[in-house]
Design a protein around this nucleic acid. Structure first.
Lengths: 215, 215
DNA sequence: GTCCCGTCGACCAGGGTGGTCAATAGTAAT
DNA sequence: ATTACTATTGACCACCCTGGTCGACGGGAC
């Protein structure tokens, strides 16, 4: 374990990337250590020199990823914004930046959370649960409820808005799949995204009193 | 092939179910014919007696599933309903019934559509595309646009509504996973679903003129 | 020289793969 | 009873891949 930390950054990252990708794509059981070492460009022996087993590697990645998300995503969210939709907008931007910084971590956590059947070392399990809890607070805490229309259940409105945003992000992901992240100009998609958010505001928020646009 | 059709219904269904489940869970490559025959309760030889290869079986299932969806789902949809949300409500009910009739088919098609990378026999590919096209028409054709608010882009409203509904269905699926289909009383979930639909109407449709509820 | 550490990849036993086939059991016709 | 035919089985095949080990080697430090 200390063996691995002694490596130069670049090699560490190459191994982590290879491993994260492999587990993300195939899940724990079907992930192949052979493919990992080939992708990472190291000999088979080294992987088991750094990590004592496949499981060991997996748990290392889990902890690494959870730490990454907390540091590069959660800790950067502005909790002083009390407008629910504005907060989600901001959150999407921060998440996007974190994803761009290391997208393998997010892919890994995606399948990690889906297949949480394998019981993990307790300290990782704990970290995982803490992350979920924080993530929830990030979205719902200190939201100004008075912005919402009076004639709809705010809890339900929350959900509808989140589902809408997830829907847009999934569609975008699907539409852009196969294109290299770097070659895309995201500005028009952000524009489109903001338009959707404006519609959500019009739909779920009160009409702003006074400044109406009965143009 | 004709060999398979000669079997009694019950045995046919058992084999189909086993195979659909296996492919749904593991995708084409990682699906195991050994597991299929064990689950279906037949000898290994019979599978290759009925279907000349794994690929052959897979394409048979694809065609079978597509036919099933068209017959038990699409053909039962009432296209005379012009209220977009009412149509989606009705569609959800019909889909639910079809799913209850054979849920393996839907699970299979789920992963089938995701991993459409393998090129299929052309006549199946064609059927698949036809199904997608029909499915789209089912939702968007002959919709009464005048119900929607004037201050939002109707196309975007369509999408927001669909994402919302998919979001609810996914959450429900996730929440109920592991419970046996038959032991659940779905009525309260339908109620909840309808409440969401009412909110969507309030949000995206015009206020009904005259009959307002300023109670 | 000699120690040590990082590195490699051939190698291991075990298990799973899609597909085959000789051997049956069953049925029906002669 | 004999023949002919089909439905059925599961042992078996050659092959591939698995997580993990280990002897060998290279090169730097002393």
């Amino acid at each position: 374990m200390e063996k691995f930390n002694g490596l130069d950054e670049e090699k560490q990252q190459k191994i982590l990337d290879a491993a994260l990708m492999e587990f993300a794509e195939h899940g724990y059981e079907k992930a192949s250590t052979n493919r990992i070492v080939k992708e990472a460009g190291i000999g088979k022996g080294m992987l088991f020199y750094y990590f004592k087993s496949k499981r060991d590697l997996y748990e290392f990645l889990a902890e690494y990823s959870l730490d990454f998300v907390v540091e590069k995503y959660f800790s950067r969210i502005d909790m002083t914004e009390t407008d629910f939709i504005e907060r989600l907008k901001h959150t999407s931007q921060v998440k996007f930046e974190a994803q761009r910084e290391n997208k393998n971590v997010f892919n890994f956590l995606g399948t990690f959370m889906l297949t949480a059947d394998y019981k993990l070392a307790p300290h990782i399990q704990k970290k995982y649960e803490a992350m979920q809890k924080t993530g929830n607070a990030m979205i719902y805490e200190d939201v100004d409820l008075s912005l919402f229309r009076d004639d709809v259940d705010v809890q339900k409105a929350f959900k509808l808005i989140r589902w809408s945003i997830e829907g847009y992000q999934n569609e975008l992901l699907h539409k852009l799949q196969g294109q290299s992240m770097t070659s895309i100009d995201f500005d028009p998609y952000w524009e489109e995204f903001y338009e959707y958010l404006e519609i959500l505001k019009k739909s779920f928020y009160k009409k702003e009193s006074g400044i109406d646009d009965y143009s």
